[in-house]
Design a protein around this nucleic acid. Sequence first.
DNA 1: AGCACGCCGACT
DNA 2: GTCGGCGTGCTC
Length: 680
Amino acid sequence: MKQSILQIVLDTPLDSSFDYRWQASDDSEPTPQIGQLVQLSFGRREVVGMIVGTSAESDVPAEKLKNVQAVRHQLPPLSPQWLALCRFAADYYQRPLGEVALPGLPKNLRALTTVALDRGLKKLQQSGAAHDATPIDVAQLNPAQQQAADAIAGASGFAPTLLYGVTGSGKTEVYLQAAAQILAHNEGGADNPSQILILVPEINLTPQLEGNIRARFPGVMVATLHSGLAEGERMRHWLAAHLGQARIILGTRLAVLASLPHLKLIVIDEEHDPSYKQQEGLRYSARDLAVWRAHQLGIPIVLGSATPSLETWHHTQSGRYRKLELRERAVKDAVLPLVRRIDMERDKPSEGLTSTLVSALKQRLERGEQSLLFLNRRGYAPVIACDACGWVSNCTRCTSFMVLHKPEHRLRCHHCSLELRIPKSCPTCGNVDLQPLGRGTQRLEEGLQAMFPEARVLRIDADSTRRKGSAQAAFDSVHRGEVDILIGTQMVAKGHDFKNLTLVGILNPDTALFSHDYRASERLFAQLMQVAGRAGRAAQKEGGSASEVLIQTRYPQHPLYAAVIAHDYDRFATSLLEERAQACLPPYIYQALLRAEAKELETAIEFLQQAANCIEHGGITMHDPIPMTMTRVANVDRAQLLIECPSRPGLQAFLTDWMAQLRQIRTRAKWSLEVDPVDI
DNA sequence: AGCACGCCGACT
DNA sequence: GTCGGCGTGCTC
């Protein structure tokens, strides 16, 4: 009877594979394959794992070896390329392979009760001939777009390309045209129809894109992959991708780990967007993994952005990535909005609005045009205080203020969700006159409504859109023209193109200029460009003036604003890169961050100190352990230790050794390591 | 991470 | 007398 040893990985933090014995029940049972799922008993639990290797012998004593209970032959094995991607991610981010390979699989596949795999697939939209990838209703591309699409689709082998173009320059058309060419060419032949992966930051903000794709490729199965899918849908879509039936896969960051056996092109839209970074568990960058995947498969990858990440920009300067630029807006007669600074020292604001911005709003109201006020701070006021004794609304569980939410009559901590009724008087001295300090979207809304009683004002932020579907309803109402002045946080910065919007006011952007996070200005620039792009995307009306963006600032002379006004990302990015090079910051060096948390700050710091001392670190810069800027969240104290290295392989080699040492340290602190951290 | 075992403090 | 706190140790 056939038998062998299987190396199995499981979804546990244990950094090793486990050997199990397999014995055929009869001669007809197929031999287990690498990439197949197996059911087995682990400790006293029943779990599902994945075969990552097979052999005749095991180093594990025979009496400890258990038999696998069942091999899941129904599911075609995950490919060696896919496993190699997981292995790379596991090694690079210093996590066990099983923690990378298993959690991304649909829950049904990992459940102990097997479900039939061959049912329900047909629900995915598919009409017409499966291999007819000809797009219909091809939009007229301008020469720059056509050239870009040809260059992308015509590239052979690994060809990373930055598609650089302002909002409205028609990047999406380029992606779709390149996709159409690659699907039509269908290099693998009729039995292996080519697949295309399109990553977007947040799928809910790009419903038009999915509709666009389906309309443009009526004969092609399109699958979406994102965290909002119901379990059944997720299973169907994942399987359609794994079985090679879905040919266009549109998804968020998690889709980068999907099984795509015939992948021939990867597109990353808005590649600079922070949501490509997973911020818990396996803290991966979907953008970086996508580039690795394209390299592994020798296929083209397109990174699209109006404000590329400095990492990507750096690669174009060094020649590692090719840069294709779309200089014009693709919509006929559309022009870039006119951006102006308003000096808040000269034009003192009342209710948070300078007189210049107020008259611009008035003008739009008279003309029947829409305005957007961007204020990235929700709530009524970030803190309330007592004038008499100096009490402020500190959170009792976090190093932060409780934010005043006036309509809800609550003080709320945005970090631990603690809620209190608004105190009627000062808790320490009894003074009844507690003052809100600063201004959030609720307070702005109140002030505007008082200033323009006739105007239809709508606020869109996380608080006003808590109920499911309410965000969509709010955006629809803006599109229908039922709103004169829209107030929004970063929620309104992405995706939506408001046809009748001709004024964008940006309030209070200055804090990011002086942040300790060296990436803050890069992010602010991207955000300002993105918000500015909400206006003036459509062709200007006959005789109408260009859309306007007004930035209220106390630092009008700051070079960042000068660059925004000139729509000059090139020069801004180049100067930021020079600063980074001089200060020895990424992308010129590589970083990792060891975080620790515990009930007592002392415990966390002590662990980090031990971690710093437990290994020789030649070639590595090891900084001192420090409490995090927001030290306490939900009664847990947090600290971190930054390490830097001028070479990526050098950092990787060090981290592997270091992790082995760290696992030996006995501590009550909870800790984790992050490679290429983004907020420090 | 689970999950069990084990050894001390306040409960019906 | 037990329930349960979380320290410690193990998982092929």
